[in-house]
Amino acid sequence: MTNFLKKINQLDKKLNYGPIHNQVEEINAIVEHVANQEVLPVAPAPLGLLPDQFEEVVDRLNEEQKVDLKAINNLLNSLRQFLSLKYGVWSLPNKKTATLIKQELAINSALEIMAGNAYWSKALNEAGIRVTATDSLEWAKTSSTGKREFYPVVDLDAVSAIKKFADADLILCSWAPNFGKSDLDVIRAWKKFAPESHLLFIGEKEGATNSPEFWENENFVNSSSLRKINRSFKSYDFIDEQIYEIKHEL
């Protein structure tokens, strides 16, 4: 993925096809924002060609162009991988979604756990929320991307952070791993130490994030506020990333 931007822009020039060019321009803008540690104003538009779109375009091309189209479509669908490897970013926050979280859920203070480089913390902070970002930072010891924090990160594991900052209005966890049961530990700690707060997970249901037990056993909030928030956070690739709120026990 080292030459991701170079390759995708070269192929864009060769193909000279408007819809592809627009997507490449969007990727260039996204990467510029991330490289400058800036928050996107809104969620990116969907990237990549759907199968029917691909077939419609490929029929007009010669053999060399068909190879190039397949290559650039693969790259369009690989932005998330590039951002994770280059910048340690798996989830792209945006100002509109962060602002809606503040407004719709009446959030004044937030705790981000397992925050990584704390990109979401930066977005929430720019929306006017007082944010504490925390992470055990174990991953950062072996990854060069761990040296690129978007927002100051306190060295604390998730359970300890919830206990220490239990008065936060919001606890946020983005892209909990889909192995182990750290997400279940988080929920137990939330119920014990901070049951009055909102607990949000950002991820893909039964896919790239969170444990199987999490998706099988937890009850999620289905509210107009959360639906409004998620409408501002449409996934830009094949990963169906959404924001989930854990339902409070009665």
Rank of each mutant, 00 (worst) to 15 (best):
Q23R: 08
Q23C: 05
V24D: 06
E26K: 12
E26W: 01
N28V: 10
A29W: 13
I30P: 05
I30R: 10
I30T: 06
H33G: 01
N36R: 15
N36L: 13
N36H: 13
Q37H: 15
V39L: 02
L40C: 05
P41S: 11
F54I: 01
F54A: 00
E55V: 07
V58P: 01
V58I: 15
L61R: 01
L61H: 03
L61F: 11
L61A: 03
N62R: 05
K66T: 05
K66E: 13
D68R: 02
I72F: 01
I72N: 06
N77T: 13
L79P: 05
R80L: 02
Q81M: 13
L83D: 03
Y87P: 04
W90H: 05
W90K: 09
P93S: 02
K95L: 15
K95Q: 15
K96P: 00
A98R: 06
A98G: 08
T99Y: 11
I101M: 03
I101H: 00
Q103V: 09
A106H: 13
A106Q: 12
A106F: 13
I107A: 08
N108M: 01
N108Q: 13
E112F: 09
N117S: 02
Y119A: 06
K122S: 08
G128C: 02
I129P: 01
V131Q: 10
T132Y: 08
S136A: 15
L137E: 09
L137Q: 14
L137N: 13
E138G: 10
W139E: 02
A140L: 07
A140D: 06
K141D: 14
